Simulated scan of single mutants.
Amino acid sequence: MSDENGTPSTPAGSTGPRPEPLRFFGTTWVNHDGDYTLRRVGVAAGSLAAVAGSCLVLRFAYEGLQIADTGRFVTFLVIVMFAVCSALAFRQTLDGFTKRPDPDRQASLRGLLAIGFVGSLLAYFFRSLIEAPGEKLHREEYEAARVQHEKRAHRRTGNPSKNRTANPPKKRRRK
């Protein structure tokens, strides 16, 4: 059950972990309710359109190199640079959907990932065909937090002094 923003509604006074919202999906990924499927289709179409637009921009950049007559070597280097950076960005983005990335590594790769933006967009497109991008990681973390919360809540219920197994009655000594 969720409200109009996709945030799960919980009974008043309930405690426990709350799911982390995903970009474009809110928390509809938890129960796949609301307009989850429509959002996935929209995200897939939007990222594919962004890939097409990005490739058009890269085409203009290539034509600019041709007009500038920079030479075959420079043109070859630019093409290889975009291909390698896109491949690295694709892999890094896909890995980021299944496990938390190392912040230091992300910071060092920021420029490389910016150059390979087409690869990141393609990874977003392919992941949105399977599930909401990042859903698997968030679901694992949310389920683990719920299990941990249940264990803690179960341990603390009731009055421990009334629990016979935890505090067996003391035997009296005879004098």
Rank of each mutant, 00 (worst) to 15 (best):
S2Q: 15
S2I: 11
S2N: 14
D3W: 04
D3C: 06
D3A: 05
E4P: 00
N5D: 12
P11G: 09
S14T: 12
S14V: 04
S14F: 10
S14R: 13
S14Q: 15
P17C: 08
P17Q: 04
P21S: 10
P21V: 09
P21M: 06
L22S: 01
L22Y: 05
R23S: 11
F25A: 04
F25C: 03
T27P: 02
T28W: 04
H32S: 10
Y36A: 00
Y36R: 00
Y36T: 00
L38M: 11
R39K: 15
V41H: 11
V41P: 01
G42E: 05
G42H: 06
V43Q: 01
A44M: 14
G46A: 11
S47I: 03
L48C: 10
L48A: 15
A50P: 02
A50V: 07
A52I: 12
G53K: 05
S54P: 03
L56F: 14
V57G: 07
R59G: 07
Y62G: 08
Y62E: 13
E63N: 09
E63T: 04
E63G: 04
L65A: 05
L65G: 07
Q66M: 11
I67R: 13
I67D: 10
A68P: 03
G71E: 06
R72K: 10
F73W: 15
F73V: 11
V74A: 14
T75A: 08
F76L: 12
L77I: 07
L77K: 07
V80N: 09
M81C: 12
A83I: 06
V84N: 01
V84Y: 03
V84H: 01
C85V: 02
A87M: 12
A87W: 05
A89H: 02
R91T: 08
Q92E: 14
D95G: 12
G96M: 00
T98K: 15
T98P: 01
T98G: 06
K99T: 12
K99S: 13
P101N: 00
D104K: 15
R105K: 15
Q106E: 15
S108T: 07
S108D: 12
L109A: 03
L109W: 02
R110E: 06
G111L: 11
A114L: 10
A114S: 12
I115P: 01
G116P: 02
F117H: 09
G119P: 01
S120P: 03
L121V: 06
F125V: 03
F125T: 10
F126R: 04
R127Y: 09
S128P: 00
S128Q: 03
A132C: 12
A132P: 02
P133H: 01
P133D: 03
E135G: 03
E135C: 07
K136H: 14
H138V: 09
R139V: 05
E140S: 11
E143N: 06
A145V: 05
R146M: 13
V147Q: 14
E150M: 14
E150Q: 15
E150G: 09
K151P: 04
R152M: 13
R152C: 09
A153F: 14
R155I: 05
R155P: 05
R156I: 06
T157P: 07
G158L: 09
P160R: 11
S161W: 15
K162T: 11
K162E: 13
N163Q: 12
R164A: 09
T165N: 11
T165A: 11
T165L: 14
P169S: 10
K170Y: 10
K171I: 10
K171S: 08
K171C: 06
R174K: 13
R174L: 08
R174C: 08
R174H: 08
K175Y: 11
K175G: 09
